[in-house]
Write a protein that binds this DNA or RNA. Sequence first.
RNA 1: GCCCGGAUGGCGAAAUGGCAGACGCUGCAGACUUAAAAUCUGUUUUCCGAAAGGAAGUGCCGGUUCGAGUCCGGCUCCGGGCACCA
Length: 857
Amino acid sequence: MATNCKDYNFLEIEPHWQSFWKENHTFRATAGTSKPKYYVLDMFPYPSGTGLHIGHPEGYTATDILARYKRAKGFNVLHPMGWDAFGLPAEQHAVKTGTHPAANTAANITNIRRQIKALGFSYDWEREFATTDPKYFRWTQWIFLQLFARGLAYVDERPVWWCPELRTVLANEEVIDGKSEVGGFPVERRNLRQWVLRITAYAERLLADLKDVDWPDSTKRMQEAWIGRSEGAEISFKLENEALGALKVFTTRPDTLFGCTYMVLAPEHPLADALTTPGQQAALEVYRWQAAAKSDLERTDLAKDKSGVFSGSFAINPVNGQRVPIWIADYVLMGYGTGAIMAVPAHDERDFEFAQRYELPIPQVIAAPGGETKLPYSGDGTLINSPGYDGLAWPEAKKKITTDLAVRGVARATVNYKLRDWLFSRQRYWGEPFPIVWVSESDYAQAKAARSSTLPTVPVTFTENGITHCALPLPVGALPLELPKVQSYLPSGSGESPLANVSEWLEIWFNYETGAAVPASQPRPDGDAWVRARRETNTMPQWAGSCWYYLRFLDPANDGAFASPEALHYWGVPDLYVGGAEHAVLHLLYARFWHKVLFDLGVVPQSEPFTKLFHQGIILGEDGEKMSKSRGNVANPDTIIASHGTDTLRLYLMFLGPLEAMKPWNPNGIEGVHRFLQKVWRECIDREGEIKAKISATATDSPELTKLLHETIKKVGDDIEGLRFNTAISQMMIFTNALQKTTAVNRGTILAFLQLLAPFAPHCAEELWARLGETPSIQETLWPQFDANLLFASQVKLVFQVNGKHRGDTLVLAGLPEAEAVAIARAHERVMPFLSGKAIKRVIYVPGKILNLVLEN
RNA sequence: GCCCGGAUGGCGAAAUGGCAGACGCUGCAGACUUAAAAUCUGUUUUCCGAAAGGAAGUGCCGGUUCGAGUCCGGCUCCGGGCACCA
């Protein structure tokens, strides 16, 4: 049922077909058909208050074209959309206005959903959800409980930004130049009790399985670098003060052990105090205080100016018994390896710099193959000045020294990762509450008997004022644990989240069998399973909800499981995942980690979540700068939809350049693609709104037009598969230009072309399809086939070159033998003059392409 | 500092090692129009030339090749990411 506008009235056409698709559930995905499945997923957006900017629809248009194309190719397509709706901006808004973040979030979702729907994407909206829906985060909490039960979640003291003035914890992005973003107050690092996920337990698999996924190489390399595997040895240095035991260091270069002239501890190292002699204590205090006052950024900015203090103590080098002074310096980090290093200044740049400044010896122990003596030298070489190992190549020496020391029990080969465990809690209101209560040791012991399968082998505990608290999970049946209403979204002031102020919710009698809770202010209910408990006040970070949403889309209404085994089996994981490169590490690594845990639990059938990944490029402002409100260069899709229509916007976004490229927004080009759609319209519909008279079922197309049509079918299909939408559109423009020059055209040719256009400009194609009297919807038709026989021309243009220079061309029969081609060239009026008087030394002939005659001299 | 991209007309760009600049924008000229808009046609890398045609040309320097925007080596600039990881 088409509209009846005479001109290409997109404002009438686009809403018309959008409601048609909605009423007919055109894009509803139903599992279990015999068709092959195709799951194409966008990184779902955070519903921010400012709505969509032009960058969002770029990736969404790309996946939509693919989704529509794959449907036409006979696939059962799953193409969903939802909302990553927990997050800081909503909380900040709540603090400012006092309104519940849920209300603000819902309003933002309504707006952004309207914007996305106006773009006419073929999402199955029946699968929509937000991560903030209790029916969704119930399963986020469920997955957390699985991690907890497997010992992959624990609590630990971790430093976070604390602003004494605001009495709150700040995120990294809320700290600017060591001051709070709000108010500009000073901030400091402060240790707080945090939940941490043991992602490091999966480091090896997260690294190894990268080889199995079809991702951009650069993204794989970033993840590799982030995981940062390095092989080396942990070596124990005996301390001169034997009462203190040994000092363990990690090194990737055990072969340079003879070149170790000092050691360095991180200022936070537990042995730092004990090792510091009374005379040096004051200096250490000052140094520590200086290091702590620096932000991480300052500490790393000062990288070039290494500093430290001597502890006054010595260790013994296990290979040669030499006394080695122990220094304390902030260029060694407590978070990596053992927080202590053996310094080999001759072969490490940082140690070299430090040794120079403090005039420590710099003996060379690796000889460069070229005899080069410039230090520091960290390249290949053989050992020198290393009695017992001299002359060995460094890799062998590394093995031999490690084994020799291992035999003596003072070293072992180890693998270290840069990857740290994942800090998984936030002191915020607007996040998933942890389904955890804290109970006393004795109550935990009592509950353990009833709940053992849901508890980790080693209880998760923390100690406060000498009292040990044990983490007891809610039974799965008690999920979801929803957020309580609070009086204020301001932080508690003590470093805990606002939840710490809701005492009726916080302090409870807890039934560890059912998960039921009664405020502790009321009498303890009858029954053995009731224990005194305090709820966990932390909430989960925004990453939690985005870690597994791609699985919930498979079966979003399921109340009995995060998704049914049937849905998990049928739809599997996304066949294509499209989103920004800014998520190359964190989101994609966290999601992979969770997926692997679910795989180990046997609840998902595959070990990797995203088989194929693609990053769309960023669209910059007209000025070539990143779009931002403050620069005032933000383009809004709404205005373009109103002025040119969404089909034009979609087409233009794809025509701008390669999908992966970073490109500036240039609204001048919009007219070009809009004209293209106008032209398509005019080729189908005349000024009176009737079907153009030149279209007829009986017209015979010229061989050229037929060939062009089949070329276009092939190229558009190939380009969509390769995500090269810009060149697909160019090809359709070429076809339309040719169409315009015809006086009669076969109706079937027009219909086939409209099918090619449909994934790109679905409203326009649908309208013209209906005007031409076709039913059902163009979305339900199969992609046209090209005839490969028609792609080969009998005549081809052969280019003549003399000494590699273009000297003319001519049409020849395809498959012309070389001898004949040379004869034609010799006789060619433009080629001949260049050949006169010279012998042909060599002939390069690429049939159908080029004939290059190489002359003597 | 390290890692990853990128650099082609006035602009966005295209080009399995085989005619560089497809397609689109802009500009210019023309047709239609009383006129304008819209639409259509032609033209638009630079230099020489009246033209035919010729020469140069894909950030810079060199190399491989009959032939290089494309491959290799060395730079410059721009963008992104990471940053004392022992």
